[in-house]
C-alpha cells in the first residue's frame, strides 16, 4: 500500500512541471480532491481553476495545446467523460492535440458519493475516440509512469485515476513505456488479465489459487488503448483459459476491447469476464462495494475455478 493514486499523481505533476515548461494544469473546482492544487501552489501562473465548467475546461486546454503547450485537465472522471466529451472529441481528438485528460475518482472509487459520481463507462467512451489513448493505472507508480508517458506523446491521452490507496504492483518502467501488458506471475492453467486496480486482486487470487494447485499467469494491463493483445493471447493460448477483470461496465470496456481483437485473431480458449454488468453503482465503503460488484480476489478465484471446471 503506497500513496493514494491521486496524491501520487498530484505530486508527480509538480515534479513534471519542473522538467516540462510546456506543462499547464487546469482544474474544474476540484483541485483539492484531484490534488492538482499542489501544482497550482508551485506554479500559480501555469494553473487555471476554471470553476465547475468542464466543457470550457476542455476547450481552453485545446486552445492552449494548439499553441505549443501540453495541458493536463483534471476533474472527476465521470464529468470529464460526459460533460467535456464534446470538446474532447471535436477539439482534442479530431485535431490530435497533446492534452492529458486526468480522470479522478475513476470506477467506483468515489464510493460514498454513489452512482452519480462513479465513472463506470469512461473507458468505453474514451477508447471509442480516434487519436485517443487510454491508460488505467493499477497503482501510484503506474499513475506516475502514465503521466510521464502521456507527456512524451503528441496526442490526447486519458488517464483514469483512483481516489484511494491501493496495493502496489511490481511494474518494470520499460514494459509500461512500451505499452505492454505487464506479466506479474508465470502460470500454466489460466491467464488473468486485470485492468487498473483489479491487478492487485488478481495477484491475491493467484496466491490463493496456487495453494489449491492452480497455476495462474497474471497480467496487469494498464493500456486499454492501444491494447497489447499479443502478450495476452499468447498466454491464453498456452493456458487455454482467460479471465478478464475490470472496474467498469462490461459494455465497451476492457473485456470488449479484448473480444474485438480475439475474434479476428481466432483465439480459441475458455473465457470469463468479470465486470459490472449493465447496472449503476451505489453508496458504501470502497472495498466492500467493489466486492459486491464482483471485484475481489475471492470472486476471481471462484470465477477461475468455475471456468476451469467447464
Amino acid at each position: 500500500m503506497s500513496l493514494a493514486m491521486r496524491d501520487a499523481f498530484g505530486k508527480h505533476l509538480v515534479e513534471m512541471g519542473k522538467k516540462h515548461p510546456e506543462l499547464i494544469v487546469l482544474d474544474a473546482d476540484v483541485s483539492s480532491s484531484t490534488k492538482s492544487a499542489l501544482f497550482g501552489k508551485e506554479f500559480p501562473s501555469r494553473f487555471y481553476n476554471v470553476g465547475v465548467a468542464e466543457g470550457n475546461l476542455a476547450g481552453m486546454a485545446a486552445g492552449l495545446a494548439t499553441c505549443g503547450y501540453h495541458p493536463v485537465i483534471n476533474a472527476f472522471a465521470i464529468f470529464l467523460s460526459l460533460k467535456s466529451l464534446d470538446q474532447i472529441r471535436n477539439d482534442m481528438c479530431y485535431n490530435k492535440l497533446p492534452v492529458i485528460i486526468a480522470g479522478a475518482y475513476g470506477g467506483l472509487s468515489d464510493s460514498f458519493d454513489g452512482a452519480s459520481h462513479q465513472a463506470i463507462e469512461d473507458i468505453a467512451i474514451f477508447r471509442a475516440l480516434p487519436n485517443m489513448e487510454v491508460i488505467v493505472p493499477s497503482d501510484s507508480h503506474q499513475a506516475e509512469l502514465a503521466l510521464e508517458y502521456a507527456l512524451s506523446v503528441d496526442h490526447p491521452v486519458y488517464i483514469r485515476l483512483n481516489r484511494n490507496a491501493m496495493p502496489d504492483i511490481d511494474t518494470k518502467e520499460s514494459d509500461f513505456m512500451a505499452k505492454k501488458a505487464i506479466k506479474i506471475t508465470e502460470g500454466k492453467d489460466v491467464t488473468i488479465a486485470a485492468n487498473g486496480i483489479t491487478a492487485s486482486m488478481a495477484v491475491e487470487a493467484q496466491a490463493i489459487l496456487a495453494k489449491e494447485g492452480i497455476s495462474a499467469e497474471v497480467f496487469s494491463v494498464p493500456f486499454v488503448k492501444p491494447l497489447d493483445t499479443t502478450s495476452i493471447f499468447e498466454s491464453a493460448k498456452k493456458t487455454g483459459a482467460l479471465v478478464t477483470v475490470e472496474e467498469h461496465l462490461l459494455a465497451g470496456g476492457f473485456a470488449s476491447a479484448i473480444a474485438e481483437e480475439a475474434f479476428p485473431a481466432q483465439l480459441k480458449c475458455k473465457v470469463a469476464n468479470i465486470a459490472i454488468n449493465d447496472k449503476f453503482g451505489e453508496t458504501g465503503p470502497y472495498v466492500p462495494l467493489l466486492a459486491k460488484y464482483g471485484l475481489s480476489a475471492d470472486n476471481i478465484v471462484k470465477t477461475v475455478k468455475e471456468l476451469l471446471a467447464k
Binding site: I24, S45, R46, Y48, G55, N56, A58, G59, M60, A61, A62, G63, L64, A65, T66, C67, G68, Y69, P71, D86, Q87, N90, D91, Y94, N95
Partner: peptide, 23 residues
C-alpha cells in the same frame, strides 16, 4: 481550429489568448 459543434470557439480562443500570455 476545427469547428462545427457549436459553442466551442470562445473556450478555444480563450486558451489561445492565455497561451499568448504564457509565452
Amino acid at each position: 481550429m476545427s469547428t462545427g459543434a457549436l459553442g466551442h470557439g470562445v473556450s478555444v480562443a480563450l486558451g489561445m489568448a492565455e497561451a499568448a500570455r504564457q509565452s
